[in-house]
Write a protein that binds this DNA or RNA. Structure first.
Length: 214
DNA sequence: GCTTACTCGCGGATTAAGCA
DNA sequence: TGCTTAATCCGCGAGTAAGC
């Protein structure tokens, strides 16, 4: 875990790196802010501010993004929704289903079936970080990814939703993609992050950006 | 009738802003 | 860097709906 440099001192980045490691090590049993602060030997208030400054997201948002990744992995492995949500660290299904349209773009069951029955449209746009693919269903954004070339992105989308009906529609999503690029334009320094952590922070910031877009 | 998918409402935890 | 506080968010448990 290597936090971005803008706005954070080396000591804060080191602190946040330890916090990320602790959150990752905790797996589905994410510690509270107070527990995390005690573990790292600092106040939870200081930890929360340092984490936000360095990562652009809060510790809870980071843990939530990791949890969604675990859920997706469970569903892809063929686990049913009920087992997958508990294995991922959800204590009950309510929050998962509230977040599903925003995080998955479809219900968890549909995601687990490879997007069967879902109609997905996508667009690809150039950014300072590379090519950005944004895909959505009628329910919401279902896939956002960065890569150096468009074919790799299209392949990744097809792999993520092998059973979905996927079509390119630049007109429908170009404005949305532009807004995401604009909202994330301050995040270029995150390039020094390891791939998995960068992806987690990136996805979380995309969802935050989408929330900010009317 | 059972299992799985999904919804609702409440209480506690977290966040963000301001001050010391 | 630590503390307070109001607003917001999230987790939990109970419940309903749908499919077999």
């Amino acid at each position: 875990c290597h936090p971005r440099e803008n706005g954070a001192s080396p000591a804060q980045r080191e602190l946040v790196a330890r916090a990320c490691a602790a959150l990752d090590a905790a797996g589905e049993h994410a510690p509270t802010l107070a527990e995390l602060g005690a573990q790292l030997g600092i106040s939870p208030f200081h930890l929360q501010r340092s984490f936000k400054r360095a990562m652009g997201i809060t510790p809870r948002q980071y843990a939530a993004a990791r949890r969604v990744e675990r859920l997706k992995m469970q569903l892809k492995q063929g686990e049913n929704v009920t087992n997958a949500l508990y294995d991922a660290g959800y204590g009950s299904s309510s929050r998962l289903y509230e977040q599903a349209p925003e995080r998955l773009g479809m219900t968890p069951a549909t995601y687990g079936r490879g997007g069967a029955g879902a109609q997905i449209v996508y667009t690809i746009t150039s950014t300072a970080l590379g090519q950005l693919l944004v895909a959505a269903t009628a329910r919401g954004i279902c896939f956002v990814s960065l890569a150096y070339d468009a074919p790799a992105l299209e392949s990744a989308l097809a792999h993520e939703f092998p059973a979905a009906e996927i079509t390119r529609d630049d007109a429908a999503l170009q404005a949305w993609a532009g807004d995401i690029v604009h909202e994330l334009s301050s995040d270029a320094s995150a390039l020094d992050l390891p791939l998995d952590v960068r992806a987690t922070a990136f996805q979380q910031r995309v969802w935050q950006a989408l929330r900010a877009i009317p």
